[in-house]
Amino acid sequence: MPQEKTEAVILKSFNWSESSRTVVFFSSDRGKLALIDKGGRRLQSKRGRLLSFAKLEVSYYDSNKESSGYIREVELLKHYSLEGDGALGRLAFASAACELLYDLLPEEQPQSALYQYFVKYLSLIESADKANLSGIFLAFFLRLLSQLGYNPSLAWCAACRKEIAVNGDSTAPLKFSPERGGVVCASCAKAGDYYILLSPASHRLLQTLQVASLTEAASLPIGYQETLRLTEALTKFVSFQTGTSSGLKSLEFLEKLKNSKLLK
């Protein structure tokens, strides 16, 4: 087996024996990459610890067959500490990004620009003010969709491609159709179809986030309910467009935290 080396972040891992597991990485040069971590669950394993939310240098034996390669050695390059103020929110938003990447990335197709963007995202989730985490997450979500070719249509009607004109003082909600791929104008909207209603402000915010850099998004404080509404629209969109399951467990986790009986 040839030996390879790559920089990567863990997206998910599955234990399959007392001491071994399969680890799915987002690699800088291989895209989504699944590798077998033999004996890695043992405390005394000497090939380095596999930390979540960390930039790792992974040396591995590549496999040309259908089975996955094996991890040989791991070096920690940078650990994104999600502790401190807003730790649970940081953990949830970092996990949500991993969930999205795991669901949407195709196997072993290099996505170097997206990898760098993801690393920047983790860095901001670690350091940004907790009030701004939602904006960073939504900007990441939109950029991920755009990079993978699933950009939702927000400025033009997803059906007739006419520009969506919103009067400055209008409060009438816009109809976002996950199935048709974006906002639909009044003349294309059909009675009985499924739509998510977006206020003009939410629509403007999504458009802003669609083109914003992560740093710009970090200066946009977005309320919790607004985040949930916009995330719901985007996850439903992803579900319709890609056939993956709708809903992000990581954000359901935030809901569970908020609604916990223990805090009442």
């Binding site: 649970l88 467990k249 990581s250 809901e255 569970k256 223990l262």
Partner: peptide
């Protein structure tokens, strides 16, 4: 333990008994 990736929240754990 709390796990966003598995959707495990505080009410899924035996915290109430501890309280």
């Amino acid at each position: 333990c709390l796990s966003p990736l598995d959707g495990i929240g505080p009410d899924d754990l035996k915290i109430m008994g501890l309280m």
